[in-house]
Simulated assay, not measured.
Amino acid sequence: MEAEVLLQAVMDYGYIILFLWLWLGMFIAPVPNEIIVSTVGFLSGQYLHPMAALLTAYIGIIASITTSYFAGRLIGYPVLHWLQRKGPSKSVQIASSIMDKYRVYSLSFSYFIPGVRNIVPFLFGMNRLPFQKFAMLAYSSAFVWCSIFFFSGLYFGQFSKDYPWEGIAFIVLLIGFVMYIGMVTLKKIAANKNVKENETRHQ
């Protein structure tokens, strides 16, 4: 996504478009939320009100994961059966493995893992986790995640004129690091799941 596109959309329609982008974008758009929130932070250093932009982005994110949670509560099993008929979903399998290993505390870090960040809330909703517990763990994790990428983008926006290459390097390294940690975590979980499945077959 180009910064100009998001800026023009916000200028034309207000902060509501930013909210909708982060709320519904996870379900219909392939753009990673890391890029969206970093772009919002970048624009806040020059064109948008930082606190209004941060609050709008955060509300959009928690709306997205809350939608996933209640979708799991209301239509979880029919959707899961439909996915199973299509074939095993790797993202669902990984999310299930994370939940099996870390239980409810997986909500504290699942948003940092691309590919499963909205599936974990869906599965917890399907399993009828009390909403208060879900909100306490998932919303706090989302706030930390949102703040990291927002303020990284804000830093880049403020210092890009004087230190353009340093700012670019900082953003690229941060996003790359978080995504690398997420991918390594996914590979380890998938490897542990395969080992357990093999051990079960040989028993």
Rank of each mutant, 00 (worst) to 15 (best):
F70H: 09
L74Y: 07
Q84W: 09
L74S: 06
I75G: 00
A63M: 10
A53Q: 01
Y58V: 04
H49K: 13
H49A: 15
A52S: 15
I62E: 04
T67R: 05
K86E: 07
S68E: 08
G72R: 01
T56C: 00
G76Y: 06
I62N: 07
Y69Q: 06
I75S: 05
A57T: 05
R85F: 05
G60W: 01
I75D: 01
G76P: 08
Y77Q: 15
I65C: 11
A52H: 09
I61H: 07
Y58T: 04
V79L: 11
T66M: 07
I65N: 02
P78R: 08
F70I: 05
S64D: 01
Q84V: 09
F70E: 03
W82K: 12
G60H: 00
I75N: 02
K86A: 09
P50V: 02
T67H: 11
A63E: 06
R73D: 09
A57R: 03
I61V: 15
W82L: 11
I59L: 15
W82M: 12
A53M: 02
R73I: 12
L83W: 07
L80E: 13
Y69G: 02
R85E: 14
S64A: 11
L83I: 13
G60T: 04
M51E: 15
Y77N: 14
M51S: 13
P50Q: 07
G87S: 01
V79M: 07
A52K: 12
L80D: 07
L55I: 14
A63I: 10
R85I: 11
P78N: 13
H81D: 15
H49Y: 13
V79F: 05
T67S: 15
H49T: 15
T66V: 14
Y69R: 04
A71D: 12
I59M: 14
I61Q: 10
W82G: 11
Y69I: 12
G72F: 03
I62F: 05
T56L: 03
Y58E: 00
G72T: 09
I65S: 08
G60P: 02
L83S: 14
G72C: 05
A52G: 08
F70S: 03
A57C: 04
A57M: 01
M51Q: 11
A57I: 02
P50L: 02
W82Y: 12
G72V: 04
F70A: 06
V79R: 00
L55R: 02
R85V: 12
I59P: 09
T67M: 11
A57P: 00
K86D: 11
I65H: 04
P78V: 10
A71E: 09
G87R: 06
V79Y: 06
F70P: 04
T56H: 00
R73L: 07
L54E: 03
L83D: 06
Y58R: 01
A53F: 03
G76F: 02
T56D: 00
G76T: 11
P78H: 10
A71G: 15
L83E: 14
S64M: 05
A53D: 03
A52M: 15
S64E: 03
R73T: 14
L74F: 04
Q84E: 13
G72Y: 02
P78K: 06
G87H: 08
H81A: 13
L80A: 11
I59H: 10
L83C: 12
T56R: 00
T67I: 12
